[in-house]
Amino acid sequence: MLSAFLAVLRRDLLLAWRGRADLLVTLAFFVVVVCLFPFGVGAETNQLRAIAPGVLWVAALLASLLALHRLFAQDHADGTLEQLLLSSEPAVLWVLAKICAFWLTTGLPLVLAAPALALLFDIEEGALPVLTLSLALGTPILALLGAVGAALTLGVRGGGMLLALLVLPLYVPVLIFGAGAVEAWLGGSGAAAHLLLLGGGLAGALALAPWACAAALRIAME
């Protein structure tokens, strides 16, 4: 039962490793966007501190959006997707494997880089674990929701912009709770509620998104 899951996961991780320059582009995009904000809003320390959680979260969200179109595009072009859809294993499993590999290679680096970038904004050090945890819970949701959008826009003209239009409104709750968690901790009210909601959202997305994504892929291959 797990053989397709493991095979897809292993292969996608191997491919990501062989094409690791692409992954660095995503990470570099994240870093550059975050560093742009002080130029835009001014380098006043208090102000930077106030906007830091939001800036980091918006940048992480855009970076994962930027990488999304790669999720199925190659497999769609070379016919692998067709073969996967004819697998005797349930489609949900290998879809989940692809999303897992995608998050491990694009989401996880963002999660790990975020605390270092937060220091540029002079965030209290105590808030860094909260920031990391909120991103660790939130970015998988972004990947799961984004995968549905990527499957729906597969091979469609103007797919990239369309994908952003489809997916960004759905990202808003994640952004609210993610950035909110850090702000709540900084405000002294504790981040537990936000993080629990993010965890609940992750559970819900894990349960529903792979089905929707598999259905969307089937439609895209018709």
């Binding site: 549905v148 959008g149 729906l152 759905l170 929707a212 439609i219 895209a220």
Partner: peptide, 10 residues
């Protein structure tokens, strides 16, 4: 079908 899926997800 794609529209139907995005309508339901929405």
């Amino acid at each position: 079908r794609a529209g139907a899926i995005i309508a339901l997800v929405g």
